[in-house]
């Protein structure tokens, strides 16, 4: 059948193009990473510093900055960007709602509240923070999900429930901050989201959680595709819709919770990156998930670099910059969208 042959080569061609775009994005990410390692109040000569570290000499101030300041910081921005963006994609797929994102539906605030709580209750056990964050993220997500399914899961209901739950948890955070200000060494930057003072010790448990959740969510990408068709169609194609939703939501919470545990309430990434990635890569989750993760990582790393460079030697929390840059850009995307098309249409 000639027609089918033509169409299949076409789809392969499209896939190749997607692969190429993904490679370009990965290169861009690499560039952002190198820039992130280089830039700051002290500019490092990366090549020489790396050489000296590799030779086993990490005593020079340059090497110490690279190893103990820049490397943890860039790792943190990469991890949290990737995790929050992927979490946004998953939450939008689970709720079938383009307005949803970990910060919108209160997942970030829930995670933040429980991070605060664990830090205030067990100040000696930093490793509990990601677990607390995950529990908080899950609690918030389940509350939104439960409220929406009781009240009928209209798209607006989910968002409104999310706003309510988000403000409850934010109030909780502020409460803890007020009665126990010493429990957090940088409470205010936690609320905005930032990476100053982050160390490998903070990253370690979150790193594994994020890596595993990202890989698992890739495994479930075709399930996420089927959810688009509506519950009945998805189920009649042989998937367990409820279980699938729950699993994806769990992964989204693991990702967002882990990220929040060390980066603070970094909001906007989870909302805008999936939209941008959908414009560039289409709606298939197998591509959309890795693309969003890469793009989110690159964006946060770049913004973190700018936050260090713009007013050097002072730095502003990256969350401020992300919102300042992301807000107008997101508005621009909304306005530029051709009329009569639906959310998430590829070009």
């Amino acid at each position: 059948m000639s027609i089918s042959r033509k169409s299949s080569t076409r789809s392969f061609f499209r896939k190749d193009l997607q692969g190429l775009k993904l490679c370009l994005l990965a290169l861009f990410l690499l560039l952002c990473t190198l820039l992130g390692l280089w830039g700051g109040s002290t500019k490092l000569s990366l090549f020489e510093t790396c050489l000296s570290v590799l030779r086993g000499d990490s005593s020079s101030p340059q090497a110490r900055i690279l190893l103990y300041v820049r490397l943890p910081r860039v790792s943190a921005s990469l991890l949290s960007g990737a995790a929050l963006a992927a979490s946004g994609v998953l939450i939008q797929a689970v709720l079938q709602n383009p307005m949803a994102a970990p910060n919108v539906i209160g997942v970030n605030a829930g995670a933040g509240f429980f991070t605060f709580l664990t830090l205030a209750l067990f100040p000696a056990h930093l490793a509990f923070a990601p677990l607390g964050a995950f529990a908080g993220a899950l609690l918030a997500a389940l509350l939104v999900y439960g409220a929406a399914s009781i009240a009928g899961a209209g798209k607006l209901t989910i968002i409104l429930a999310g706003v309510a739950i988000s403000s409850m948890f934010t109030a909780g955070i502020n409460f803890i901050k007020t009665i126990s200000p010493e429990s957090l060494y940088n409470g205010s930057s936690f609320l905005i989201g930032g990476f100053s003072g982050v160390s490998f010790r903070d990253l370690f448990p979150a790193f594994w959680l994020i890596l595993i959740s990202l890989l698992l969510s890739l495994l479930f990408s075709s399930h996420a595709d089927l959810l688009r068709l509506g519950d009945d169609s998805a189920q009649s194609l042989g998937i367990n819709v409820k279980l699938c939703r729950f699993t994806l939501l769990l992964l989204a919470c693991l990702l967002a919770g882990s990220a929040v545990s060390f980066s603070g309430l970094l909001g906007f990434v989870g909302l805008i990156v999936p939209h941008i990635a959908r414009r560039l890569f289409g709606v298939s989750h197998r591509i959309l998930l890795p693309a969003s993760a890469l793009f989110g990582a690159a964006l946060v790393t770049l913004c973190d670099l700018l936050s260090r460079l713009l007013f050097a030697p002072y730095e502003i929390p990256v969350g401020i910059l992300l919102s300042l840059l992301g807000g107008p850009f997101f508005l621009f995307l909304l306005l530029k969208r051709p009329r009569g098309r639906r959310e998430g249409d590829p070009r």
């Binding site: 079938q96 509506g230 009945d232 169609s233 009649s236 042989g238 709606v283 639906r342 998430g344």
Partner: peptide, 19 residues
């Protein structure tokens, strides 16, 4: 589930219009 999906296909009444 999947075995059943190879036996019966369903055109449900309410259908999404995905992008």
């Amino acid at each position: 589930r999947r075995e059943f999906a190879r036996l019966c296909a369903v055109l449900p009444q309410s259908r999404n219009i995905p992008a």
